[in-house]
Amino acid sequence: MDIDDMLKPDLILDNLEADTREQALESMARILLSKGYVKESFVPAILDRERKYPSALPMEGHKIAVPHTDAEHVNRSAILFARLARPVEFLSMGAPDETLSVQLISMFALHEKKQIGYMLEVLINAYQDNDTLEAILNAQNAEEIYALLRGAVGAQMTGEKPERDW
């Protein structure tokens, strides 16, 4: 499994219309379903997981949500990234009574945690860089968002090899 097996141009959504986080999550989950990455059960599972364990991360500057759920609902690992037409309210992972305004969502469909730990870490590192999130928010279109994401991940991956498989 390589980063390019999970992070793909056709898995970038721009201008996704949603009035609530539930609408955004359901639309995204259904796209993964239509492309065969996940099972039908992924859709309710991702909504249920968000209720129990909110997924928005208050980074230093912009916020990002990283919804995901159990591997049993997934056929093939993928990362579906969305820039919403307008921000919607998410609850913070660390403080569920805190509301965060989120326009960027990185949905993980994870089939097998071995071998992808390093890629997840690299992605999270990229999201921790406020300049990267700022550039993604200001990008012209989905192609540019993909190029920014792939570039940020690629920059992180140079030199350092994964030492563990979790």
């Binding site: 997981r49 364990y53 990283v66 995901h68 759920t69 159990d70 591997a71 992972m93 993980f108 994870l110 945690k113 992808i116 730990g117 997840l120 870490e121 999270i124 979790w166």
Partner: peptide, 8 residues
Amino acid sequence: TAIATSTV
């Protein structure tokens, strides 16, 4: 879920 967050 012990698959993404805790892995990172």
